[in-house]
Each structure stands twice: as structure tokens, then as C-alpha cells.
Amino acid sequence: MLNAANPADPMLRIAGLNSWYGESHILHGVDFDVREGEVVTLLGRNGAGKTTTMKSIMGLVPRREGSIRFKGAETASMRPDGIARAGIAFCPEERGIFASLSVTENLMLPPQIAPGGMSVAEIYTLFPNLKERSGSQGTKLSGGEQQMLAIGRILRTGARLLLLDEPTEGLAPVIVQQIGRTIREIKARGFTVLLVEQNFRFAATVADRHYVMEHGRVIDMIPNSELSANMDKLHEYLGV
């Protein structure tokens, strides 16, 4: 069978991915892999196409071509709900907390798609603030709490591949640390994470490998262990 999962396959394999918003051609042949249990980052300057890559994986761009194989099955022509039900969960850059829903309703919103997700009690242990504010309107939370809610609500669903788009953007250092602990914790629980980051110092504390994007392509891959040896290169890529 063409789509049969092969144990040697990576969990996610992206090959020759092209994406468009209307007439603008944004991704020009993106290739990369994420293996089961890994935390992999996409690094790159603003506008490099990191968010568009995540949206393409979720089926949220108007047009995409190329191959996106998840657990061996091609998902590039599936609808977003089908992709989510296959086991991928998405935490968007703008967090996507719903104003008309309470904290609890936001947390319970994504349907469970498979067994093996975290329980609400476990999520509240990870993020005690959320429990205290469970009855508040979702958007009344602070930026950090909203980010915790956005991450927490996709841990429940049973999805095993999590896409986190800049979870530390604009947050205070203590909260960034808490999110770092959370990512290490979910990795320890066997989740696979694709993480978009601008802050490679933070990325280095959680990730196994880093892909660097530029102008809608992946231009390099750096294992985390070789990060310090490649600092000059990285500074040049990211323009910092």
C-alpha cells in the first residue's frame, strides 16, 4: 500500500512544499523532516515563511503544492479538520483565544481526536494560573496566561504532533522559562513538537535540531549539539 506507515519514516516529512496567498508565491520548495519524539525548530527572520509553513501543514493556506506526509500518509490535499483528526494540533502565533468563550470553554474547545491526551487536571498542574481563572473570559487573561491556554488546550486532544508558532513572542522572561519547562515536559511525555522561534537562545534550551528558513526555503539544518560551533553562521542567517 502506498500510504502504509513505515517505522523508518519520520513522523512528518515535507518535500517540495510551495504555497501561495493569492498571487504571492510565499514558499518555494520547503523540505524538512521531524522524527517522532523530537523537538524541532524553524528559525528565520520575520517574513521568511515560518508561519506559512505551519499553516500549510494545517491546510490553512489558500493554495499549496508538494508533499506533506504525516505518519507516512499524504495530507497535502486534506482539509484542516481532516489533518487535525489525523493527529496534528496547532497553536497559532496570534494565540487564537476566543473572546466569547470562558477559559474553561477555550480549554475544552478542541475535540478529542484520539486517546492519550493529557487530562484537564494535568494541564492545570502545568499551568496553575489557568485553574484560578477558569471562569474568566478567555481574552481577559494576560498575554502569558493566554499563551498557556493556547498551548494547554491542544495537549488534551490526543494529537501527538504539536505545531507551536512563536509561543514566547512578547512574553516576560519568567513566563518564557515556564513555557520552556512545559516544552521539555511534553517532550518527556513523548509528544513531537515543531516549534517556530525567533529567539534561538530559547530554542537551544528545548530543541534537538534547528532548521533555518529564508525567503520561503529551508537553507540549513543545525543539530542542537552543534549550535555553539555554528554561532557565526546563525547570526548571519538571523541578522542579529
Binding site: M58, G59, L60, R79, P80, D81, I83, A84, R85, A89, F90, P92, G96, F98, A99, S100, L101, E105, M108, L109, P110, P111, I113, I154, T157
Partner: peptide, 22 residues
């Protein structure tokens, strides 16, 4: 819960669909 999905989809249908809701 059904109503919460409805309200959420009123705000941001794409994201609700990306959570696996038809």
C-alpha cells in the same frame, strides 16, 4: 459545548476547523 464551538466558529472559523471540527 456545541454552543461554545458555534460561538468560536463565529469568531474564527479557520482555527476551529484546524482543531478538527467540521
Amino acid at each position: 459545548q456545541l454552543g461554545a464551538r458555534l460561538r468560536a466558529a463565529t469568531e474564527n472559523p479557520d482555527l476551529v476547523q484546524a482543531f478538527g471540527v467540521n
